[in-house]
Simulated scan of single mutants.
Amino acid sequence: MSDEASDAEGGLTPAWLLTRLLETAAPLEDRAVASVVSFRLANSADLATADLAFTCVARQLGGAAALLGNSDEAAAYLQQALDIASRVQFCPEIALAQLELAELLVAHHRDRRGEAQSYLDSAATEFDAMNMQPSLNRAGALQERIALLDSRSPANPDGLTKREVKVLNLIADGKTNQEIADDLYISPHTVIRHVSNIFGKIGSSNRAEATTYAHRNDLIP
């Protein structure tokens, strides 16, 4: 995809300039700029800029909408960005859209934390593979926040998170790592990390012991 017609002097397009301006407004929490620029970019949400670095206009609009308190609009824009990036198979932008969706769901739709965790797991795996350390750090901070929220929910034994209990359920169902990944829409690498964390917390060395633990602690729905 490409921007609108290029600027006559600098070769930069209006959509590119506005997108970059919006990209800086959200971290600075500049709501005035976010509001004005979002209005001007609203008809360009399906574009992607590639002048210096590929980015979806919709993702920046999603960040601005979240800043302005419009969480439903933000979610729609971020989903649009994820769809656009997925169509062109641009992994960094896919992962960033997933991370921002996860952040939004945790902040404003806490009943959808499971969905947020799925987005986060996928994004973190990609950030790790692409060595995107700042984004990986951001994903780690969100994971800590989810863990804190989970700790305020009815406690699971041995500090298991809700996601780990879900993985444990699937282990008890006899699922392989690949099957668990398919069921939860995460990568096998992420499943391996969850399984390792589970085994460490419950003191298990294999799947049979983990299954026995799950039944003994009434963790099977």
Rank of each mutant, 00 (worst) to 15 (best):
S71N: 14
I94N: 01
T19C: 09
P154A: 02
L149V: 07
Q79A: 09
V165Y: 00
R112V: 02
S196H: 08
L61Y: 06
D183A: 15
V165S: 02
G11I: 05
A32F: 10
S204I: 10
L47S: 04
Q117L: 03
N206F: 10
S38A: 07
K175I: 06
A74S: 07
T211S: 11
N43Q: 13
A53T: 15
G200W: 05
R112Y: 00
E164N: 07
A50H: 15
A50E: 15
N206P: 08
A95K: 00
L120D: 01
V37W: 06
D150T: 04
D183F: 13
N43K: 14
V36C: 13
A66N: 11
D7T: 13
H215S: 13
C56P: 07
Q178D: 13
D218N: 13
E209K: 14
C91K: 14
L101T: 02
P157K: 08
R110Q: 12
A181M: 02
M1S: 10
L96N: 08
S196L: 04
R40F: 09
A45V: 00
A65K: 04
N217L: 09
A74W: 00
P14G: 06
D30N: 10
Q89N: 11
N137E: 15
K201P: 08
T125F: 03
L82T: 00
T19Y: 03
A139L: 06
